[in-house]
Design a protein around this nucleic acid. Structure first.
Ligand SMILES: [Zn+2]
Ligand SMILES: [Zn+2]
Ligand SMILES: [Zn+2]
Ligand SMILES: [Zn+2]
Lengths: 162, 162
DNA sequence: AAAATAATGTTATATTATAACATAACAAAC
DNA sequence: GTTTGTTATGTTATAATATAACATTATTTT
């Protein structure tokens, strides 16, 4: 997991510290508890793997990691866990490259946009009310009610531009 | 193809008229001519199929239609044609549902956003400089240079809301 | 403890897309 | 107009992503 918080952009290319991962797992535990949902060992393990990755990861990469960890796993194993995490807003899915990444702010529901580096894969989640509001206004002009906004910007990150 | 022009929103749910399809084919012919590219029979046929569809279509749907038309075709047949059309800006690809639709304004390069109805599949291409400009500004704050913006809004279209 | 529910295991298969190499069509050069 | 190089297409196989269907296990409720 990269530091995806738009408020601490400077550290955005550092590797995920174990503290950051632990914090997200704690938040997830609390959140599932609050919602009376089972944060099972499998779901926790998949979230950990997604958090630890320094880039969005594919489902089959997670599957390999689950297997390496000794657990018996097949595609449905990982897809079901990912579906749960997606429903709970703990991870996001990037449609442009079929990958999954941990949400940086799972506590409150939010719309986000993603900056995906086409060179190094580094991906940053940005919470920006402004863009989403403007999209909503645009959609309203067409009498269109947005249920989900997928905004994925592909390009070069600051590091790769230098 | 649906009428995707943001200037004639009212007709957005009408079926594509053969004139509209013919117009887009003409534009494509002219455009390829200008660029010294070969608008072959296959490429024309695939573009026609995409244009005639009243919704974005999947690659394998196009493949079936090619075969029904009597042509020998395999997956690479359609994907290569689609790649060409994508490169030339004649069609767009929707990442959220792996479908392809004809560009409403292939003449000038542009960034577009898509309103995808989750109920009827109707999809509208909207050209809106404002949103893209704001996205670009947001990205600049992170020293990020956008190469491609994928903005796909899923929700209910006006017809399905009633 | 029994019954109901939810989660996971397991096998098979669907869907989307590309690799690799052969053939054919076309364009440029001779 | 034939050779030569280039581009496009045909063809077979396979990769990558995702889901269906049903059996088993774990958890919760009664
Ligand atoms: Zn998030
Ligand atoms: Zn980068
Ligand atoms: Zn367009
Ligand atoms: Zn609709």
């Amino acid at each position: 997991m990269t530091e995806q918080c738009s408020h601490s952009n400077i550290a955005s290319c550092t590797l995920p510290s174990s503290e950051q991962v632990a914090r997200l797992i704690d938040q997830a535990t609390e959140l599932c508890d609050k919602r009376n949902l089972r944060f099972t060992r499998l779901r926790r393990q998949v979230l950990e793997l997604v958090c630890k990755a320094d880039q969005p990861v594919g489902a089959y990469h997670l599957l390999d990691e689950l297997r390496e960890s000794g657990r018996s796993a097949a595609p449905p194993t990982v897809y079901r866990a990912l579906d749960f995490l997606l429903e709970q807003g703990l991870v996001h899915r990037l449609a442009t490259n079929n990958t999954y990444l941990a949400c940086a702010h799972p506590q409150q529901p939010h719309a986000a946009i993603f900056l995906v580096c086409s060179q190094c894969g580094h991906t940053q989640e940005v919470h920006t009310g402004g863009v989403i509001d403007q999209l909503r206004r645009q959609a309203e002009q067409f009498d269109f009610a947005i249920e989900h906004a997928s905004v994925e910007l592909t390009g070069l990150c600051s590091r790769c531009r230098q």
